[in-house]
């Protein structure tokens, strides 16, 4: 897919209207994973709008988003950056062999208290 098609696809999956963004940066100001991310929530909105999707697809930022929805809750324009990040992440891991996490990774994540919820959630997010 070229960038125009990718953009269309991501807007379709996310259901987000990126044109509503007024570039205030409140999403990135709210983001608790900001320092771990290469691209930040507001950049997802503007880069997707510009059709610059490839760099996002390759970025580890996709896997740092906590899905905590703070950006969605606080956005004054209803842009919902978390949905954009989710859409790009799915576009990345839906490709054959693009799973981020495999069963082999599990043992090193475990300690005595690790809740099943952690593994289930992580697999949901990192694996297709």
């Amino acid at each position: 897919m070229n960038n125009t098609e990718l953009k269309k696809e991501i807007l379709r999956i996310s259901g987000v209207n990126v044109k509503k963004c007024m570039k205030c940066g409140k999403c990135s100001a709210s983001c608790p994973a900001y320092d771990e991310m290469e691209f930040h929530p507001h950049q997802f909105a503007s880069m997707i709008d510009n059709g610059e999707i490839e760099p996002l697809l390759r970025s580890d930022s996709l896997y740092r988003c906590l899905s905590c929805f703070a950006c969605m809750e606080r956005c004054p324009r209803g842009v919902e950056p978390a949905k954009l990040i989710e859409a790009v992440r799915l576009t990345a891991i839906r490709k054959q062999g693009a799973n981020r996490m495999t069963a082999d990774d599990v043992p090193q994540m475990l300690d005595d208290n690790t809740p099943g919820q952690l593994l289930v959630s992580a697999f949901r997010k990192y694996t297709k």
Partner: peptide, 11 residues
């Protein structure tokens, strides 16, 4: 105060 500085790309 946690805020974004969009010009410098910082939180």
């Amino acid at each position: 105060v946690q805020a974004s500085d969009l010009i410098n790309g910082k939180q």
